[in-house]
Design a protein around this nucleic acid. Sequence first.
DNA 1: CCCTCGATCAC
DNA 2: CCTCATATCGAGGG
Length: 378
Amino acid sequence: MTFFIREVATLQARVIMLVDLDYFFAQCEERRNPSLKDKPVVVCVYSGRSEDSGAVSTANYIARKYGVTSGIPIFLAKKKLKKDAVFLPMDHEFYEEVSGKIMRILRSHADFFEQVGIDEAYLDVSQKVKGSFEEAKELAQKIKEEVKAQQKLTCSIGIGPNKLVAKIAADIQKPDGLTIVKHEQVESFLSPLPVSRLIGVGRKTKKKMQTLGIRTIGDLAKYDVQRLIEVFGKKLGIYFHNASIGVDDESVQERGEVESISRISTLKGDTRDLKVIVEKANQLCDEVHAKLVQRELGFKSVGIVAVMVDMSVRSRSRTFENPTNELEVLKKTVKELFEKFLNESELEARRVGVKVSNFVKEQERQKQITNFIGLAKN
DNA sequence: CCCTCGATCAC
DNA sequence: CCTCATATCGAGGG
C-alpha cells in the first residue's frame, strides 16, 4: 500500500515555479541608465492627445511609494511625484530583447516551460529537483543569481505544487523575493488572502463576490459550489471552487502561436468622422499586416473596436469564406465595418482598433489555392 | 459547430 | 484625464 501511494506521488506530485521579472520595463530602464536607480522611474504609454495624456505602464518601487501604479494617468503620476522623477516612453523593442535573453536562461532550467507575457514564466521543475521543494529552493536561488549576473535584473519567484499556488506565492514577496508553499501549507497559505489574489478575480468579480459575503479565499472555499456555478457560470464556478482550495492541474506547456493580432490607438480628438477614423485605422492595418507578413500568416476574420467617449467598448467583425493575406482586403473590410458601425452608433469615438484572427499558415493557404486551381482545370 | 458581440481580466 | 494586446467565456443566433 505504501508502495502504491509513493508511486502515485512520484507520478503526480509536481514542483512548479513562477518567475516574475520585477517592475520589468522600469528595471530595464534602470539597467540601461543606472543613474535612475535612486529616482522614481515611470515608464509611460503616451497617447498623443496632449503633452501628458496617456497612462503609466510600469513604475519602479520608489515611484510606487508615492502611489504611482500601472494604469493611472500620466498627469496624475506627475502630480504625485513632482521634482526629480523620470518619465520615459515605452521602448518595447528593448524590453523584448532583454526578455528574450532572460527567457532563454529560465527555459534552460525547466523540464517544461511556459512564457506568460513579456515578464513572466512558469517552470515545471519536478524532474529537475526530483520532487523536492528544498532542491527547488536552491534551484530558484541559482536562477536568480544567474539572471542577476548575466542580465543585471532581479526577479521574484514563487514555488508551489501547481501554477495557481506558484503564481500567488510569487506575489507575496517582491521585488527580489522567493516564496515557497508546500502541499501541506497550501490551505493555510491561501485561506487568509483576499480573493483578488486569484487569477480571474478582477474588479468586477471581486465586487460580485463581496455581495455574496466572500472576501477571502477561505470564504470562497466554504461557499457552495452549486451557488458559485449559478452566479458565475459553469466553467468559472468550478474554477473558483478548485482555486479556493489550491487545486489546479493545468500543465506547464509552451504557448502555441498567437490566435489574434490587434492594434489600438487613441485618436487626436473624439470624432465620428469616417475619414478621420479610417485614416487612423489604415495606420493600424499597416502595423497589423506587417506582423502577419513577419509570421507568414493569412487571416479569415477581421475585427474593429471602438472605445467611445463614455469609455464603453464596441466591436464588429467579419469572417470570410476563404483566408487572405492582402493588406488591401484588410483595409477595405475595416473601412466597411467602421462605416456600418458609425451608422449604428450615436457617440463619438475616442480610440479605434483593428484585429485579425482565424489564422491560416500562408503555406497552407497557397496550397489550398493551388489545389483549387487544379480542381477547376479538371 | 461556427459566427458575432459584449464583458472581464490582466499585461 | 483614463494605454495596449491577447485570451476566454457566455449568450444569442444560425
